[in-house]
Amino acid sequence: MSHMPTQPGAPSAMTPAEVVAQALELIQDSISRYEQLQSCFNAHNNETAAELFGRIAAIGRATAAAVARLQPAEALPRIAPWEFLWRCPDVLAPRPEQPSSEDCHHQFAIAELVRLALEREHCALTRLQDAHQQAHIAASRAILARIVEQQQQQLTELDALLAAVRANEATPPDDLDPPNRPE
């Protein structure tokens, strides 16, 4: 690599291949983050949360597989990470309404975690819907419609997951140990 790519073209002019490539980056990035959180909660001995993110990642992988099947004949273009258009806030991004460390730690309420994941996936849906409305190329528009469907299906599954979790939710116990000093 001798140069950095330039700014991406106008979103409205995306080809079907570009649409699929962008969508796969959107989904894969979410999956990677869920896997990161799975291993993170695993490392903090919160097996329930780890397992939950494992399940959310699995739902994401199903969506990714479905979207990959929409791939047009031509090879997908390679998107530099910074050319990715449909960015959403991180699941556990710090937010002003959570001014305390007690709102984000290793003993997170499980339902809250699902809600945060849903928030991210709703954001993803919004990005896809916007792209669908803006798309000028008919084929791209058609593929985006299918992708939106897949994303909605994913949200339905996450909703179901949230309902199940809420039914069994217990209040997380207080963390009786202060932060550790490993080094």
Binding site: P94, Q98, P99, S100, S101, D103, H105
Partner: peptide, 12 residues
Amino acid sequence: RTFRPDDQSDWK
């Protein structure tokens, strides 16, 4: 998020 939640939550 553990030691500086008070004044880093608005970084975004």
